[in-house]
């Protein structure tokens, strides 16, 4: 039995990378490649061709461990762009877009020199200020017109970003919940953001039961938030949803999802 798809027909946008902005014109003439490369040079550390995020840095940012060594390139870039925490939709959206240029492959937290120049050339930014402005304004449209597939790609990216270099197959439940309420909840999809807050609450409260989330469970959230009604009336636990969603729906229907403000 296949479930009936009740997907809202999304406009097939050719690309999600280039929201045409009026403001962009101002920068058009001034783009200079050397400035762009110089910017990249500022943030390289050991590896001269890649901007790297260490697992340590991520943990430090999330307050999981004290800082032991100077922040790495990507971490500094994030700070200089004005993002206090790495779990920020605008910032992740920017990283995702840089990597998404190489279509299909989603790597983890690393920006290659080529990607950097290519992307900055495309959006014609060569200073931090321009870049900051561009990120802020493009993220406003984030996810609005995405297809399910694009959303899934973004989810996969987030997952791999959080895993970082330590190649595990799953992320902590707390981490997933933080991603949900700090990143997914801020997207412009109303249903998805409502679900994500609920789901984050559920995860926070059931950390002991569900200790970690794997990529499959994480990605299915996109399907879940797309196909399931807000009152979960069309949810059937006999369908192929992972167990955690069965539990989630049961939890919601028990009325436990009182509007707890997420952390």
């Amino acid at each position: 039995k296949r479930y009936k798809t009740n997907v809202e027909i999304l406009k097939p946008s050719t690309t999600c990378l280039e929201p045409v902005l009026a403001i962009q014109n101002n920068f058009n003439k001034g783009f200079q490649m050397w400035k762009c490369v110089e910017l990249f040079q500022q943030y390289i550390t050991t590896d001269i061709n890649n901007l790297i995020l260490h697992g340590d840095d991520l943990n430090v940012q999330l307050g999981l461990q004290p800082r032991m060594r100077p922040p790495c390139g990507l971490s500094r870039l994030q700070h200089d762009l004005g993002f206090q925490t790495t779990l920020n939709f605008d910032y992740l959206y920017f990283l995702f877009n840089i990597q998404y240029i190489k279509k299909g492959t989603i790597k983890n937290t690393m920006i290659h020199r080529g990607e950097w120049t290519e992307y900055l050339f495309k959006i014609e930014c060569d200073t931090l200020e321009q870049l900051h402005y561009y990120i802020k304004s493009s993220a406003m449209h984030g996810m609005k017109n995405w297809t399910v597939e694009q959303k899934k790609n973004f989810f996969t990216f987030m997952f791999k970003y959080v895993i970082g270099p330590n190649q595990t197959r799953y992320i902590d439940t707390t981490m997933a919940a933080k991603l949900l309420c700090n990143v997914v909840a801020l997207t412009t999809c109303p249903k998805m953001s409502r679900f994500s807050i609920c789901f984050a609450n559920f995860l926070f409260k059931n950390v002991s039961v569900h200790k970690c989330i794997n990529l499959d469970q994480w990605k299915v959230f996109v399907d879940f938030s797309t196909f399931i009604n807000e009152d979960c009336s069309n949810f059937d636990s006999n369908d192929a949803w992972p167990i955690i969603y069965d539990d989630f729906v049961e939890w919601m229907q028990k009325g436990k999802s009182d509007r707890m403000v997420c952390m």
């Binding site: 469970q217 192929a240 949803w241």
Partner: peptide, 18 residues
């Protein structure tokens, strides 16, 4: 789910129950 996690199986990108 465990087999999906260990990459014996994968969930179809478009059809969640396949």
């Amino acid at each position: 789910e465990s087999l999906v996690e260990r990459e014996f199986l994968e969930r179809d990108e478009k059809e969640q129950s396949l």
